[in-house]
């Protein structure tokens, strides 16, 4: 009999369960990097991403009803939601639709390969960027930023099941994209 323990993939994430007694300004300061990464995943343009984050932060600072609980677990999803709304407004303004359930691959922007030691990292980045927007989004929120399924569902305003199926499909696509290119754990890709 083989007992497979659940892998511990969470030790590196910021604590999202503990109540951290910090001011809203400090919490926002801790979150704006994550906001920028989310913005990059949404729009894939560094300049637009910067604008989106600035607009989102200004809205957050002007918000009349910020989260009551001054903790990262409440502030971060709140900021993500603001950013997403800013992005959706921007899309509407540009009369550009975000494909809701499109599975068609969105061609990735050309990326600068890093040093030779980062070749594997470059391949993973390229694979993530090649995903359709909705899949990129869910991969970033779950696997990179560590949001729970419930938080993602709340943020994307969709059922929990949709989050799970979207995540499963995104991971499946990533696995196929990286098949044969990923070095086994603990080894460097050549």
């Amino acid at each position: 009999m083989v007992n497979t323990p659940a892998p511990d993939l969470f030790h590196g994430f910021e604590s999202s369960g503990g109540v951290l007694k910090r001011g809203l300004d400090q919490l926002i300061l801790e979150c704006y990097s994550a906001l920028y990464r989310y913005a990059r995943v949404l729009c894939r343009d560094p300049v637009v991403a910067e604008d989106l984050v600035q607009e989102a932060l200004l809205r957050a600072m002007r918000a009349s009803r910020p989260p009551r609980e001054p903790s990262l677990v409440h502030v971060r999803p709140w900021l993500f939601r603001i950013l997403r709304n800013v992005w959706l407004n921007e899309c509407r303004r540009r009369r550009r639709d975000v494909p809701e359930e499109s599975l068609a691959a969105d061609p990735a922007l050309p990326m600068e390969p890093g040093p030779s030691g980062e070749a594997d990292r470059y391949r993973v980045l390229a694979a993530i960027e090649s995903l359709p927007p909705l899949y990129r989004e869910v991969i970033l929120l779950r696997d990179l930023e560590g949001l729970s399924y419930q938080e993602i569902a709340h943020l994307l305003e969709c059922p929990l099941g949709t989050v799970m199926s979207r995540l499963a499909r995104a991971r499946s696509k990533l696995r196929r994209a990286l098949l044969g290119t990923l070095a086994p754990q603990g080894k460097k890709a050549s």
Binding site: R40, D120, R171, L174, P184
Partner: peptide, 21 residues
């Protein structure tokens, strides 16, 4: 799946925040 998720997490942070921001 564990291997894939670990590999994804290894690229975190995905993007560096520009100094201007």
């Amino acid at each position: 799946l564990t291997e894939l998720v670990s590999r994804l997490r290894a690229v975190h942070p995905l993007y560096e925040v520009p100094p201007s921001l």
